[in-house]
Structure formats: C-alpha cells, structure tokens
Design a protein around this nucleic acid. Structure first.
Lengths: 305, 305
DNA sequence: ACCATTCTATAACCCTCAGTTATTTGGTGA
DNA sequence: TCACCAAATAACTGAGGGTTATAGAATGGT
C-alpha cells in the first residue's frame, strides 16, 4: 500500500520541517518531495500536513505514522546489514568435519586465523572417518569435509585445496635430520613409527613402498598422524607424516624433511551436492588454499619448523 | 539497497518452491519473478538459489534473508493497518472538553455510541468553563470543545454542530405539562428553577426575558442544567433547559415542552487552529451532528421523553 | 523411446512513476 | 513595495518492474 520510500520522505519532512531541507537530506529535488507527499496524502485519504502561512506542519496522524515507520526503517537496516555480512562471510555457521590428521593439525590453527576477521561466526569442528564425513555431509549436518583421501561418492563434490607431501619427521638431533632429503629406504633402518594397514595413510604408504619393491617395516603402529608426531616429539622414533599435519604442529625439537622419492598428496575439500554450498564454506576453502599455498611443495626451507 | 518487493518475491519463491506458483501468488507473470530473482542476486552479490535439474533450491543465505524479511513484512502490515485505522478513525486519542450542560447530558451518551464502532479509541472527557475550554484547546491538551455559547477568540475555530432550543422542563404531572407549548411568561407564576446571572445560560435567558419586557423570577438558582434537571425530576419545580441536556437525560417522570417564543440556541464545536484538527475530531463532530439532527427543532413529538 | 508436462530463462517491448528543471504562487518581514 | 523563502505546479525523462512469446532442460507416463 504505502511504500517505504513514502514513509522515508514523510519522516524526513517531519524531522527537518521543510520540503527543501528534506529534499537536500534525501538527495532529491524539492518538487520530488512535494509531489510525493501530495501523492501519499491521496493514497492514505487524509491530510498529513497543514498548509498554513506557506509552511507545512504535520498532523497528529502524520506524526503517528512517522513514529511507527521508524520500526520499519530499523528492519530495513537490519536486513541490509545481514546481507552485507552474508556477502562478507562475517556471519553464519560453518561446520567442518575433518579426518583426524587434518583436524588435529592445521584445522584449529587456520580456523583461528579465519575467525579473527569474522568474530560473529558460529563454528563447529568435528573429527571423523571418511565414512562419517560422507554421512555428515550427506545429511546436511556439516558444510565442509576435509580429508587427504578423496572419496568417490556421487553425493559429494571434491575440490583440491592444496598440495602437500609426506614428510619424514624425526627428532631434531636425529641422524636423519642431517640429510636434506630422506630416502624412504632409510626408514627401514631406524625406529619407524607408522600407520595401521587399515587407515588411509597406512594404505597409501603401503602402496608407495610396494611400488618400489620395498617392505614397510616399523616398530610401532598408530592410527593418527597426531599420535605419530607426538611420539617423534618425544624421541621415540621417526615417522612419515603429511605436510599438513607438520604445518599444524608446534615445531620444537623436531625436524621435517622431504623424502626421496617425494610422496605427493593433496588436501581435499568435500561438499555435499545435495545441499547448496554456502558462501562461507567457499570462502573458507579459499582461505585454506591461500594459507597452505606457500607451504605447499617441498622447498628445502620448509624443513625446519 | 534491497527493496521490499525483492524480499517479498524471494520469500514467496522460497515458500512455494517454484517461480511459476510464486508468480501466481503475487499476481504477476513468471518471467517477472525470474528476472527479479536474478536481479536481486546481482545486487547482493551471491547466489540465492541453486539451479539444478531445472529447479530452484534456495541457498542457506537466501533462507536466512527470507527469515529476517518476515519481520519487515510484519512492520509493513502494521503500518498499513495503522493507516487504515487512522483513516477509519478507529484508533487514536480523542480528548473532549465540554461545558457542564453538554458534558453531563448528551456527551457521555453519544460518546458511548461513538466508541461502539471504535473500540480501540482512547477517550478523555473533561468539563470546564468557557475559559478553561479555550485554554485547553489553545494548549493542545484537548482536541474538541463543546459549548452552547460561541466564544469569539482568534485561536479557536467554531463549527455549528446542531440546532436546539431552550425547553421548559417540568414534572410529568405538572400543570404546565398539559400545554403543548409553554409561554415563558408562565414561568413567573410557578416554582421556577433558573441559573445564576453569571452563567452563560443565565445571561442568555436574562437577555431573552428583558428583550420581551419580562422580569426573570425564580425561587432557586443553580449553575448547571444537570442540577436543574435533577431538581425537576424530584418535583421541586420547572426549569428552562437546553434541548441537548434534555436529550441526554433519562426522561422518566418529566416532560419537556417547547417554549413560546422559541428560544433557539446552537451547539458549537470548538477546535484550536494552533494545532491541526485530527480526522477523528472531525468525525466525532459529524457523528454528533448526525445524532442530534433529528432531535434538532421543536417537533411536538419530541416533547415527551 | 517418445511425448506431454513442468519449470526456468531469454528476448523484445511497454508504461507507470519517481525523478528532473524551470517557473509560479503565496506569505512574511525589512 | 520589494526581497526572500517555501511550497506547488507544469512539462518532461528514464529506469525499473511489468508484459507476451518462446526457447531449453528435466521429469514422468504410456
């Protein structure tokens, strides 16, 4: 019925007293204001201003309407702000589920960076297996899955977020730390901490070794890179760890070296294609990619953390 | 930034699921909806719907915005309702100040009728002298003054609301009740209740009598018609009372007769011209006029109440 | 496999309405 | 009476929200 613009003009005229000043305020010409008021009066069916002595004085009705209109303007502003924030990704909910390797290492650190500029964000971080990731994504309970093994599943789309590689991690004073590049065959001659055959990382490493006719020997079997790292940190041995986990960890007393041959792997971002991917999710993936890009390859300088 | 119309269309599409049904709902064509959504997406800078399988499914962001927009629509509706009610005079504040003659008699009765169709109205009734009426009107504390003596004052404008006359009121069994018309000279031969010389009614009647070479004799002097009426009702005598007071009173056991000569008077509506007169005030004046119009003159049938 | 149906998107056109500039009218005060 | 200021009017413009007609993609029934 009566438009927001009409209420805006009405309010402004009441506020500043004359059509000319209102027009100035609103950035339009004086006749525009004059016409709009007349038009609005026709519309509502009763006078909004008394014309006397060549001036406009608002009627009680007009004052009443202008009063109410303030609430409308509030809501308008509110919505505009919300849209701004949605565009900027500064509000919303971001639910990430990651494999433990990623979720323990880089994820908390990078999320910490991410929310620094988005304090209103509501976060959810969860760790889970491949299957759990798929399930949470499919049911809409999570926005983004992070994994270093890409699932082949019709309901999720996969994006390569960053390139990394397996790094050999050892105590800083370890003999292997003297080498710039560690040959994987060396691992069989030291106390090697590795992964259960069932785990994705275990399978991946198994494949790599057997492709090169090597046997994977290790004295300790763990499930997560975080565990392996912790053991290395305590001087219990050396381990192959994905570079993402290394980036995320505190680097005291441990050295990370690229391997020969290099064992490339990728960090994958997983989103459901049953649900629309939020803006925010896209932004976080990009943020991740940007953050990890310089750490990406196996520059020799990345060795010591 | 983003218009109410855009939000309306967005919400509707989300609600009903397809552009075609939304268009139908909104009473526009399907392309109008389609274009508007595209336009809105350009405006906000992020997608509001996923186009897949030839269908639109809203993004989380769109749902969020639509959610918020509901509040806006509420306010819109609220304002439209308020305007309707202001137009219909069903909301607002009506403050009436009347001389006691009017304020005791017809005013409560008529106001009772008036608010029957306007239950949300906020009322204020006050009684006061001419001077007080002028003052309250001038200070904006009252919207409408009612009086049977028109003030000559620049700050109030006067409207004649109804015609009436002085009526001779006596107990139903009184000798004067036998006459259809009572000659005012008769009053000097019965127990006559009249008004103090200071009161407007006293002055008015004084003038009438002296114009006809009569002396106004009375055994009892009161200030208000209500008092006079009450006395008549209790058989204490007869009185001249304006017809408005008679209409307002309960008519048991009393008779009202026109006089010879007729003593015309008018009910005046007084409004300040320092402040705009509200719609509602105008309506109430009209209501009064309509209500009193049939009772107006001195038809013989109006005699017995 | 194909056709009918349903939905979105595009194209080309239209018209109302909020805006413009230029000017007039009305009121007040020096 | 003139100068000044505010509101109103007139005549015009452009953009946006609308139209019809139609194309293109996906779904479902026989």
């Amino acid at each position: 019925m009566v438009s927001a613009r009409q209420l805006e003009i009405l309010s402004t005229v009441i506020e500043v007293g004359t059509t000319a000043r209102a027009a100035e305020l609103l950035g339009v010409s004086q006749p525009a204001v004059s016409n709009m008021i007349r038009h609005t009066e026709d519309l509502v069916g009763f006078p909004l201003f008394m014309r006397e002595h060549g001036r406009l004085t608002p009627t009680k009705e007009a004052l009443h309407i202008a009063q109410e209109a303030q609430h409308l303007f509030m809501q308008q502003n509110r919505i505009d702000n919300i849209i701004d924030e949605l565009r900027g990704g500064t509000i919303g909910r971001l639910s990430v589920i990651a494999t433990p390797s990623v979720g323990h290492g880089i994820l908390p650190r990078i999320l910490g960076q991410f929310i620094k500029t988005r304090p209103k964000l509501q976060l959810s971080i969860e760790l889970g297996s491949q299957d759990e990731i798929i399930r949470k994504l499919g049911s809409g309970q999570a926005d983004l899955g992070l994994s270093i093994t890409p699932p082949r599943h019709s309901a999720v789309s996969v994006r390569e977020i960053a390139n990394g590689q397996l790094m050999c991690v050892c105590p800083a004073e370890h003999e292997l730390a003297l080498q710039e590049v560690v040959s994987i065959s060396n691992l069989n001659h030291v106390s090697h901490i590795s992964y259960a055959a069932r785990t994705p990382l275990g399978q991946m490493i198994d494949t790599l070794f057997s492709e090169r006719g090597l046997e994977r020997r290790y004295f300790c079997e763990v499930r997560h890179t975080a565990t392996a790292l912790e053991m290395v940190r305590n001087g219990l041995g050396v381990a192959l760890v994905d570079s993402f986990a290394v980036i995320g960890s505190r680097g005291e007393n441990i050295a990370a070296r690229p391997t020969k041959p290099t064992l490339p792997l990728k960090l994958y971002g997983l989103t459901s294609n049953m649900f629309p991917t939020t803006n925010l999710t896209m932004q976080f993936q990009q943020f991740l990619a940007d953050y990890l890009e310089p750490h990406g390859g196996s520059g020799p300088d990345d060795g010591d953390l």
